[in-house]
Design a protein around this nucleic acid. Structure first.
Length: 418
RNA sequence: GUGGGUAUAGCCCAGUUGGUUAGAGCGCUAGUUUGUGGCACUAGAGGCCAAGAGUUCGACUCUCUUUACCCACCCCA
């Protein structure tokens, strides 16, 4: 028996409707914001992620599915959605069009991690990318997209955490201040944080070790070190969120794990789906395009984990949609009916009616049970009487109510033009 | 990579201090007199008890190893 790779999941026929539900919701929200879909390859040159995501991140260092193709090129299954979009943006000269360029994607992403609740080796993200605007309005609109999705799905419990990690200039100053502070307590830091100290001291703020948390609780806050422009940008974002009545928590400790972020970073966090509660994470990445080889172009966006989103809906008892069921089941009662059933059924289907028949040659009673089992909305019995008179009863399976109908008026019954 | 937990029917689970034919519920299939499903009742199919080794007269049960899954750390969506 060959089984499914660790950390991956089958979406079975009886549950795929959940995916259709969230994907449809999310696509409709994108449409309402005039965001267009972009599809990029599942794998890219490894170099793209080294430069885009950043070679000091855990994602790049130890979680990528990297392989050499037959031409000995190093390829990597996308560990996140943004880098590929940035590459496509540059490669297809989308910067030459009228800006901004607003794009969304639904894509699998791959990270070699230890699976646990809400964490998989292959998961799926909905994400949006706004290129070409430096304005705080773009940051706010991006957050509004996420908020709108949650609102329409009925999720009220997510907390929006927001922070600014400034631009490279103010971050430099802050890093110095932070290091000065941490140096005093260096011995008390955990071993991984000691390593982070030189490479990426910001990450220490995100450490979950009690000892480190105690130290960082009183650490200097980056918001106090922002340059005037970054400060103004951040304040404008918050002001705008206030106007929109979007609640948030300014959390100076959130630091995204991808190196491309600048200024705004944010997360929507759920407390109901286990330890991996971040359903949506994003922010601004003004330097990404340049880092992967394009002319500088500001950008902002987010990624949203669809598995975590579905988990959240289910854990909160919210709708995840309904399983698709056939409109009509046709039960057979005679050989003559059997001879006619296929053309009869195909005609209905070709007009867009979802019709099911028995393919196992069951007994009459077995067919009715089957019709019930599959949740058919309506049922008709096709026998010699019906074929001779062209009349049948159409039965509402939920209520048991039967309505006389002409066999050639089934489509009309379902309000479908013949 | 580091911890902890679990592994018996398709699914969720029982299984007595080790004792011979391994159990329930749900689901599945078929019936309850032959043109009407859902409920109820009856019957049936379906298990190398995760794998391997050990202890024992005897192992689903005890020991060890392996594997898989789950949860947490880490990281992140």
């Amino acid at each position: 028996m060959i089984n499914i790779p660790k950390g991956t999941k089958d979406v079975l026929p009886q549950e795929s409707y959940k995916w259709h539900y969230v994907e449809n919701k999310v696509r409709k929200v994108a449409l309402d914001f005039n965001i267009k879909e972009i599809r990029t390859p599942t794998f890219e040159h490894t170099e793209l992620f080294l430069r885009g995501v950043g070679d000091t991140t855990d994602i790049v260092n130890k979680e990528m599915y990297t392989f050499n193709d037959k031409g000995d090129r190093s390829m990597t299954l996308k560990p996140e959605g943004t880098a590929g979009v940035a590459r496509a943006f540059i490669e297809n000269s989308l910067y030459a069009n009228t800006q901004p360029t607003k794009m969304y994607y639904i894509t699998p992403v791959f990270r070699y991690e230890r699976p646990q609740a809400g964490r998989l080796r292959e998961h799926h993200q909905f994400g949006i990318e706004y290129y070409g605007s430096e304005s705080y309005l773009a940051d706010v609109e991006v957050m509004c997209v996420a908020k709108t999705i949650f609102d329409r799905l009925g999720v009220k419990e997510l907390e929006l955490n927001i922070n600014s990690i400034g631009c490279p200039e103010c971050r430099k100053k802050y890093n110095e201040a932070l290091k000065d502070y941490l140096r005093v307590n260096f011995d008390k830091l955990c071993s991984t944080c000691k390593e982070r100290f030189e490479k990426n001291p910001l990450r220490i703020l995100d450490c979950k070790e009690e000892g480190c948390k105690a130290i960082t609780a009183k650490a200097p806050v980056i918001l106090d070190y922002l340059c005037d422009d970054c400060k103004a940008h951040h304040n404008n974002v918050l002001k705008e969120l206030d106007k929109l009545n979007i609640k948030y928590v300014v959390n100076p400790h959130i630091v995204r794990g991808l190196d491309y972020y600048t200024r705004t970073v944010f997360e929507f966090v759920s407390t109901s789906i286990g330890a991996q509660g971040t359903v949506c994470g994003g922010g601004r990445y003004n330097n990404l395009v340049e880092q992967v080889g394009g002319k500088p172009c500001p950008a902002v966006g987010f990624g949203m984990g669809l598995e975590r989103l579905i988990l959240t809906l289910e854990s909160l008892g919210l709708s995840v949609g309904e399983e698709e069921v056939p409109d009509l089941f046709i039960a057979l009662l005679s050989d003559k009916a059997k001879e006619n059933i296929m053309p009869f059924t195909m005609n209905l289907r070709q007009h867009g009616l979802s019709v099911e028949i028995d393919l196992l040659e069951r007994s009459f009673k077995g067919q009715l049970k089957y019709a019930n089992k599959i949740g058919a909305k309506y049922m008709i019995v096709l026998g010699d009487d019906e074929l001779d008179t062209n009349k049948a009863n159409i039965k509402n399976m939920a209520t048991g109510e039967e309505t006389p109908i002409q066999l050639n008026e089934i489509l009309k019954f379902f309000n479908i033009e013949a």
